[in-house]
Design a protein around this nucleic acid. Structure first.
Length: 817
RNA sequence: GCUGGGGUGGCGAAACUGGCAAACGCAAGGGACUUAAAAUCCCUUGGGCGCAAGCCCUUGCGGGUUCGAUCCCCGCCCCCAGCACCA
């Protein structure tokens, strides 16, 4: 069909090099942030620049986001698509330790490599606004941000448990603890208590929750909002006082209706009243249990086997409902950080309490009875899911439905001053302290007389000193403490000898505000520029992995809220639209270094070209679900591009004559424009590409090379294959970038076929199809069906019971036997 | 255990949230072109029965609702991801 002249062949390497150079030269990807019309902030989660470089999973995510940005640009927006590097953190630090290279040397090297790969991939990145969180010009403002929270009263210090590896003698992040042991050496982890900085994110729990349902502020993937809702974990319940020799013990419960069944009480081992309530006889056993708990470590305690352990501390408490004395125990399944750190145990109706009561032979009382049960029906297990339950063994509340007994009991307890309704959240305050080296030092100075003093703004950044021995050691404090000349400073307030905070902040603080900095990288006198922020935020589209559904996305929202309340930001929700992308799997498993199935993009780009690689990634499965990466898949999209290349070469040489032919393809053409546009809007990239392939096939089938259609094809291909489209656009005789042209419009009336092919079913089974004019009446279609022998064969001599006709869709004749 | 997402040809997948199951692509087979191979082009390709027109079966399994179910309901099984004693 097409004659192949060597100089007319599609050569991706040449085309891509040419256009990358031209984009650079013409500043194609650098929007005017102060004047551009219809601003559209197209954001993707910035990568951690690992030594291995980009892998195809990153390419998939970035390409999908880039396709969306390019599409928005073609629809007339000024699109800002920045890229940066999330380069601080334990990840980088551990890798640097492993290689024996200082992270300050390693990271810039990795960034150079990442930037090369990202450019090669053909992203529409505005590199004028690149940032790295490790750059003092960036973390100066991360430290400033900490001070904003400090001034707002949202930062505080308290003692908290950390994971401690006694072998490596270092603090571990929760994710470095695998099944209760250190991920590196396998030694069981212990818990230690250190003073740490926290942010009061729990103050915002209700707003963080409420905005999730506010469609005017947030249009997010449902999976992400659900994950956030669960993470915040709001529980409605009651706080109830149980009297004891050491004063009232408060418990939190979501099931006040079961209070008459509370036969014992359990305190967290760390509960402040434990010592007072311990009877002399039990002191030894209690001390032993507390030792064992501490040795377990915080993660081990939560993750380890679920076998419940505990000790009777000998003290007594009074159940306020029954007035009876009940024993008080401690057990590590009760957590100090949730509720009040104490529970009323209702073994009859709670699985954990039941297991505990059975093991330690504590009394079990039934206080709820389901249908057909009475107060005496024996319990073989905890009855937690009774349908239509009513109260039994519950004094004056007997017989009340469990569904409303809770409120009644809380009201009664409130009247007696023994309790009140209460809301609890699973969400904890955000611990931002890291006893590590590779992060922004927390800008606080401790003075013997002034206490903690924030570093004055003029002294920011507190530079992270370049030290060789950056490894954590057995002191349990950051390596920074070992550097006298850095550590010892005069107090900014009184000038007396003082010392710096030695913890660095969590990487999630770096990433909680980076979208603001992208807009403002050229200003070194402010964290962000208000005019720019007003113009470009909230972010129009944010695309990233759902592994950040809770931490990063929740912290970013929290930071925005605090700043909004201080009048420093015009919005409280930073991301107008968020979509979670899927993940690339290889041979049925998620790509990971440990499985050894990580694929790097370079070889594929070298062999097929970036455009084919991009097309393949977008075609292999739905963007929001991901898919399986297979080398063989690459040839399909490449063949498609080759054919489009030829079509462009032969444009105008193949013109259609014949009205019918023209009409047949015109409908397809309009349908394709509609499908591709909607596909891009919904991130259904795989079906959008399929639609383009269909149009190409249809055009080739009738030997059509209409210029208008070829033009549209090239424009619609541009988001996926940008260099290729630019080259084709130029070959079609245009002097400007294809991205400065307008997205094709379609005529809705022309997306509809003139005739409809109606499947004719008999009793639900398709027996034939009839051609009728579009919009034909039931009468016409039935008549046509009646003339069709392959239909009449099944209807002959039978009673027609019912006719189901869906216009232009289907006819179903229901006949008797 | 809980939450979310899945299970459709040899493979990746599609299907207007009830209306022709398998679009598009890969792989495979056959043919054309070629000295040959590659590339390209044309045809076939869910399974079964049949010379054939055609018929029967088929969306993880078992039930249900419906004229009609990949889609809705009930009960299971399996895979992936996240959370994990939250009272």
């Amino acid at each position: 069909m097409s004659e192949h002249h060597p100089d007319h062949e599609y050569r991706p390497d040449a085309v891509e090099a040419k256009w990358q150079a031209l984009w650079n030269e013409r500043h194609t990807n650098e929007p005017d942030l102060d004047r551009g019309a219809r601003p559209f902030y197209n954001l993707m989660m910035f990568p951690y620049p690992s030594a291995e470089g980009l892998h195809v999973g990153n390419c998939f995510a970035f390409t999908g986001a880039d396709v969306y940005g390019r599409f928005q640009r073609l629809r007339g927006h000024t699109v800002f698509e920045p890229m940066g590097f999330d380069a601080f953190g334990i990840h980088s630090e551990n890798f640097a330790i492993k290689l024996g290279i200082h992270p300050a040397q390693l990271i810039p090297r990795n960034i150079v490599n990442f930037r090369r790969q990202l450019t090669r991939l053909g992203g529409m990145f505005d590199w004028r606004h690149v940032l790295s969180t490790t750059d003092p010009a960036y973390y100066k403002w991360t430290q400033w941000l900490f001070l904003q929270l400090y001034q707002a009263g949202k930062a505080y210090k308290k003692k908290a448990a950390v994971n401690w590896c006694p072998h490596d003698k270092t603090v571990l992040a929760n994710e470095q603890v695998i099944n209760g042991s250190c991920e590196r050496c396998g030694t069981p982890v212990e818990q230690r208590f250190l003073e740490q900085w926290f942010f009061r994110i729990t103050d915002y729990a209700d707003r963080l929750l409420a905005n999730l349902d506010d469609a005017t502020k947030m249009d997010w993937s449902a999976s992400t909002t659900i994950a956030q809702r669960n993470w915040i974990g709001k529980s409605q319940g009651a706080e109830i006082e149980f009297a004891s020799a050491a004063g009232p013990i408060r418990v939190f419960t979501t099931r006040p209706d079961t209070i008459f069944g509370a036969t014992f009480m359990v305190l967290a081992p760390e509960h402040p009243l434990v010592a007072q309530l311990t009877s002399p006889a039990q002191r030894g056993a209690v001390a032993e249990y507390l030792r064992a708990t501490q040795a377990k470590g915080i993660v081990a305690r939560k993750v380890g086997d679920k076998e419940k352990t505990g000790v009777d501390i000998g003290g007594k408490a009074v159940n306020p409902a029954t007035g009876t004395e009940i024993p008080v125990w401690i057990a590590d399944y009760v957590l100090m950080e949730y509720g009040t750190g104490a529970i009323m145990a209702v073994p009859g109706h709670d699985e954990r309490d039941y297991a505990f009561a059975t093991k330690y032979r504590l009394p079990i009382v039934r206080v709820l009875a389901g249908a057909g049960e009475s107060a005496e029906t024996p319990l073989a297990e905890a009855a937690t899911d009774l349908a239509d339950a009513h109260l039994v063994n519950s004094g004056t509340f007997d017989g009340r439905p469990a569904s409303d007994a809770g409120t009644a009991i809380v009201a009664w307890l409130e009247g007696e001053k023994l309790g009140r309704g209460m809301v609890q959240y699973r969400l904890h305050d955000w611990c931002i302290s890291r006893q590590r080296y590779w992060g922004p030092p927390i800008p606080i100075i401790y003075c013997g007389s002034c206490g903690p003093v924030p570093v004055p703004e003029k002294d920011l950044p507190v530079l992270l000193p370049e030290i060789d021995d950056f490894r954590p050691d057995d002191s349990g404090i950051s390596p920074l403490a070992r550097h006298k000349e850095w550590y010892e400073v005069p107090c900014p307030t009184c000038g007396a000898p003082a010392h710096r905070e030695t913890d660095v902040s969590d990487t999630f603080l770096d990433s909680a505000w980076y979208p603001l900095r992208y807009l403002s990288t050229e200003f070194d006198d402010r964290a962000w520029d208000d005019a720019r922020v007003a113009r470009w935020t909230p972010v129009a589209s944010y695309i990233g992995g759902n592994e950040h559904a809770v931490l990063h996305l929740l912290y970013s929202r929290f930071i925005a809220m605090v700043l909004h309340d201080r009048g420093q930001l015009p919005f409280e929700e930073p991301f107008r639209k968020f979509r979670a992308h899927g993940h690339i799997v290889k041979d049925g498993a998620k790509m990971s270094k440990s499985k050894g199935n990580v694929v790097v993009p370079d070889q594929y780009i070298a062999r097929w070209g970036a455009d084919t690689f991009r097309m393949y990634l977008m075609f292999l499965g739905p963007f929001e679900e991901g898919g399986d990466f297979r080398d063989e898949g690459m040839s399909g999209p490449r063949r498609f591009l080759d054919k489009v290349w030829d079509l462009v070469a032969e444009c105008d040489r193949r013109t259609l004559s014949g009205v019918e032919l023209q009409q047949a393809i015109v409908v397809k053409w309009n349908q394709t424009k509609k499908k591709v546009t909607e596909g891009l809007e919904n991130l259904s990239y795989n079906t959008a590409i399929a639609a383009l392939m269909e149009l190409l096939n249809a055009m080739r089938a009738v030997n059509c090379g209409e210029r208008k259609m070829v033009k549209d094809m090239v424009i619609m291909l541009a988001p996926f294959a940008p260099h290729f489209a630019e080259e084709c656009w130029e070959r079609l005789g245009h002097q400007t970038s294809v991205f400065d042209t307008a997205w094709p419009e379609w005529d809705e009336a022309l997306t509809i076929e003139q005739t409809a092919e109606i499947p004719v079913q008999v009793n639900g089974k398709t027996r034939s199809r009839v051609q009728v004019p579009r919009g034909a009446s039931e009468k016409v279609v039935v008549a046509a069906a009646r003339r069709d022998p392959s239909v009449t064969r099944f209807t002959e001599g039978k009673d027609l019971i019912k006719v189901v006709y869906v216009k232009d869709r289907l006819l179903n004749l229901v006949v008797g036997p």
